[in-house]
Write a protein that binds this DNA or RNA. Structure first.
Lengths: 170, 170
DNA sequence: TTGGAATGTCAACAACACTGACATATGCTG
DNA sequence: CAGCATATGTCAGTGTTGTTGACATTCCAA
């Protein structure tokens, strides 16, 4: 199983495809690529009092304005205490606004302020530059495959969340 | 630039391909997929005194037995203090062996013990299960594209490290 | 022999996650 | 209205992983 042969019975067409070696290369590619993926925003954030967690919060609030805390919690997959620490600083610093819900006053709806939008732009611009280069270098067919594999790699709930966001974006 | 149109001048063929919206979907796919990617090993590790950093160390020592601390440092992209804390516990617990170099006695060459191999197997088995399912679901062409985009997303040094590991694996 | 490289270690600190407990306000249901 | 559930916020404690900075040891090479 660890000697380079296929690690499970495969039909002939797959014997040369799903070897442990091929899978391990994919695993390592994910590891190295994710480092690159986060490197640029991380560099920007390290000059401020913010970190990757702030980036994620700002990204998804921008993506789904008016989202509730609970919804954000589900998307980010962290505890409310962890998210709250991040949201508190963002609200204190005037990047995020929290509005009491109209229908249900227990809920808080989150919005980016102008300043919050500015940060989001700065971070996502940096991340898009790399993404655009990678997409252009690899070509449209590769991008389609890239997306298909990533989707298949997600947990079910994350795939659902991803689908909802994808559909909401025009 | 944030209104959904392509964010940089593109030739016609790319106007429908590299919109900010498409790029953002790719960014979110990476985020959600990476969560799935690490979920299974993380679950296993949380039952021990180990974390993701231990997994990474064990993975690359297994991949390149006899690697030096410095080499591992470059691959993992962390400080020696951070790596050392992880290596120390792995050595203390008898999962990793550190051998003084023959040619250069300053160097330490790292190897997995039997117990270390057992943990590596357990972790990478879990990770491969998900990878294999994703690969199978997406198909060979998608996988090729997946790998091409990921490679294009890496920093140069990481792409080099990745290439060396890839070539070393038969 | 001296300088520098490789390694290891100590201390302090920060970011980010977790659990557990508790408070507050609100909504819903009987 | 009473009681329970939900949504949010907060406090305290803890763990993992990363960082800087400082310093010691060992050893190679000029």
């Amino acid at each position: 199983m660890a000697d380079g042969r296929a690690s499970s019975a495969q039909s002939g067409e797959n014997l040369l495809f799903l070897t442990d070696e091929q899978l391990r290369q994919g695993i390592e590619a994910m590891f190295f690529a994710y480092r690159g993926f986060t490197a640029d925003p991380d560099r920007i954030l390290s000059d401020m009092a913010y970190g990757r967690a702030h980036h994620r919060a700002v990204h998804f609030i921008n993506r789904a304005p008016g989202t509730t805390v609970n919804n954000l919690l589900n998307i980010l997959g962290v505890t409310k205490q962890s998210l709250n620490r991040v949201l508190r600083t963002l609200i204190e610093d005037g990047l995020v606004e929290s509005k009491v819900g109209k229908a249900d006053k227990r809920e808080r709806h989150l919005f980016l302020t102008e300043e919050g939008h500015a940060l989001e732009q700065k971070l996502s611009d940096a991340q898009r530059v790399r993404m655009r280069m990678a997409y252009r270098e690899a070509g449209p067919d590769a991008v389609a495959g890239f997306r298909r594999v990533l989707e298949a790699m997600m947990d079910r709930e994350m795939r659902n969340a991803y689908g909802r966001l994808k559909d909401s974006g025009t």
